[in-house]
């Protein structure tokens, strides 16, 4: 579903991403682990077409992102670290707007049930987003993804800054989505969360994808040791 082939991004002499090759199949949750500046976000931005690669390709559903930026986006849903919404509009209105941007048409009740499905409490649907907590905004982001019925979900540090309960709920949502056959690419530095909901884990360092392991094949403690080892070397 998602495929990176020798994906490279350079800014002058600085290498942000160095020949990364990876693929994420439907139903898979691929977690990118790494320190700040390791290239996780860059990878996601390249799949979104926000950046154009220096060399290599990013493919979505077999389509080349750089060549068909709009078509590939039809399959993608994106939840950034901080879901920024229009503060003067309500949760439902925000969802309605972004869903419309993707070309979808939804009735008010459909929108409402999407938001509830994403975990937003009923009574806050018609309140302005300016008063939402970070977790609530994150849920609107999830609802946007749900509304789009995307085949791929790109998550950039989705749980950072969330309280443990909200974070846990979020993991559950991701898992249920992947069970429905959605391919998920998630950048995070939360090893615990990655182990919780990922099916495969990739460790990145200085723009390189240094190793990939299956989540089921590794214990939590081993993952931490592995991660720190790679960070040190």
């Amino acid at each position: 579903m998602l495929e990176a082939q020798e994906l490279t991004k350079r800014y002058g002499d600085q290498v942000a991403l160095d020949a990364v090759t990876l693929s994420v199949a439907p139903g898979e949750v691929f977690c990118l682990l790494g320190a700040n500046g390791a290239g996780k976000t860059t990878t996601i931005h390249l799949f979104l077409g926000f950046l154009s690669p220096t060399s290599g390709r990013a493919m979505v559903n077999g389509l080349h992102v750089a060549a068909e930026p709009l078509k590939t986006k039809q399959f993608l849903a994106y939840i950034p670290e901080q879901v920024d919404l229009y503060p003067h509009l309500t949760g439902r209105e925000n969802l309605e707007h972004f869903a419309a941007l993707a070309g979808g048409k939804h009735s008010a009740s459909e929108l409402r049930s999407l938001l509830v499905e994403a975990g937003l409490p009923e009574e806050s649907l018609e309140r302005r987003v300016g008063g939402y907590s970070k977790g609530m905004r994150q849920k609107v982001g999830v609802a946007i993804a749900l509304a789009k019925k995307a085949k791929v979900l790109l998550l950039d540090e989705p749980t950072s800054g969330l309280d443990p309960q909200a974070s846990n709920e979020f993991s559950r949502t991701i898992r249920s989505l992947s069970e429905k056959g959605v391919a998920v690419l998630m950048a995070t530095h939360d090893l615990f969360r990655a182990k919780e909901c990922g099916t495969r884990l990739g460790i990145m360092r200085r723009g390189k994808l240094v190793t990939t392991v299956a989540a089921g094949e590794i214990e939590h403690a081993d993952l931490e040791t592995l991660y720190l080892d790679y960070m040190r070397s």
Binding site: K73, Q74, L76, Y78, P80, F98, L101, L154
Partner: peptide
């Protein structure tokens, strides 16, 4: 700056349309 532009862009809307 607010970050809503990337969210909109990820939805696959044409910037011309926007």
């Amino acid at each position: 700056e607010r970050g809503t532009l990337r969210l909109a862009a990820a939805q696959g809307v044409r910037m011309e349309t926007l």
